[in-house]
Design a protein around this nucleic acid. Structure first.
Lengths: 243, 243
DNA sequence: GTCTATAGCCGGATAGAC
DNA sequence: GTCTATCCGGCTATAGAC
């Protein structure tokens, strides 16, 4: 499945996202009119991501947010109850959104499942790049209990990866030299790189499908190659003596 | 080379580090007495890392820093000129420190060079874990020109990785399906994971040499395996039809 | 629902005693 | 060199007009 196909089969357009955001928290907003609220929430969230990405959420002031959104302080406070809650809502919404999609990944052949998990993660993090970046950088703002809640989508992804790898190891498709847990631990930072170092990939004109292709090759090799570094490590001491 | 051997052959003990920190910036400190200054700087830096890691540098207040270091505001200001400069100095020192070590990596056989680069990076990031974590999370605080300067150690590491991989590809030790640049781009986040998600590895009781071993196997496979995902991707569409 | 004006607080930084 | 006391600016949040 390519990125385009993913976008056509999942509710990941901008209007889908911000509309879902309103619905999730509507009972706590002072504003009740959805048609009015959604565009403004969109403005507020986009501005928050922009300012947070360049200076961090903590140093972003609500005055800056007003300027960026062309709203007044009073107007802003009709949509957010506090600066802290704005951050909390972003974490909570993202977590819910990711769980909904990752949970739907079918569990068939391990290679197929693994590819789908990886592609879906990259695709979601593309569509919600500012959200992912924000969540990664600003997770400190959360209290321990809130953090535990917001991390659930991460845990789900990790357990699904481990499950697929273990399945592949049972079927003897994948090597068992490294544990499924530690391989999953290596896969995740590879995927995070797509939204954390976005500018790097933009600069190099790497498309999202190129990135997926390259990551999938790299991971697939890490899982299937019969080679082991063991021999390499053992000869290493001899090499050092040669110096 | 194991982590222990690395520590014995490089100036990476705590006293080495904080002493070097004082030397690098001594002309700008109000304090001139090194024996007095080094322990206090150590206290200040450690407290800064601790507070920043849990709440972020931006929300850390100098009053918190005073409490943590058992100093007064006035006393503190004998060691730092401003909050901003404290952050800047951390970035600059780390950058210098990493360059000094990475630049010394010998350029012999590509496999050996690659292993040494990777091990050294992990080993430095172990010894200076709080510094690396700080630099990653707080790089926003830097102005563009300062950031450009502080990123030089990253660029050096990256260019050395690419150089070694290209060398290996020329010698036909490594596959050329993926470019050296994109492989290097995959290696870096794997290494960053060691200091970014430290708690995860602590919890799992993964030792640093275990981590290096596992990463080296994974990378080595990614470089050498003859397998290509190409066949897999091509058959993927057929698989989808099967559903 | 949205605005302006302001309350109330807390941060970084400094002055000046010791 | 180190302390206490204080200044001043900017922050979040709210009150009240429209």
């Amino acid at each position: 499945m390519t990125f385009d196909e993913f976008c056509q089969t999942h509710p990941v357009q901008e209007q889908d996202i911000y509309s879902a955001f309103f619905d999730l928290f509507k009972q706590t907003f002072a504003i009740k009119n959805k048609n009015l609220a959604v565009p403004k929430l969109k403005k507020i969230l986009k501005a928050t991501f922009k300012l947070s990405a360049t200076q961090g959420f903590a140093t972003m002031t609500l005055r800056q947010l007003c300027q960026e959104t062309e709203m007044s302080m009073g107007g802003l406070y009709a949509y957010i109850n506090s600066k802290k809650q704005l951050s909390l809502y972003i974490h909570q919404f993202l977590n819910q959104f990711v769980i909904n999609i990752i949970d739907g990944v079918s569990n068939n052949h391990p290679e197929q499942t693994l590819e789908e998990l990886i592609r879906y993660h990259v695709y979601i993090s593309e569509v919600l790049q500012p959200w992912f970046f924000f969540a990664f950088m600003e997770s400190k703002n959360l209290s321990p209990s809130q953090r535990k809640f917001a991390i659930q989508s991460e845990l789900l992804m990790e357990s699904k990866l481990v499950e697929a790898i273990e399945e592949g190891q049972k079927l003897e498709i994948y090597s068992t030299i490294l544990s499924a847990t530690s391989i999953a631990a290596h896969i995740k930072p590879l995927l995070h790189d797509w939204y954390l170092k976005r500018w790097k990939y933009m600069q190099r004109k790497t498309t999202i499908d190129d990135f997926c292709f390259s990551v999938l090759i790299f991971i697939n090799r890490g899982l299937t190659s019969p080679h082991s570094l063991h021999e390499h490590s053992q000869t290493n001491e001899e090499q050092n003596h040669d110096k």
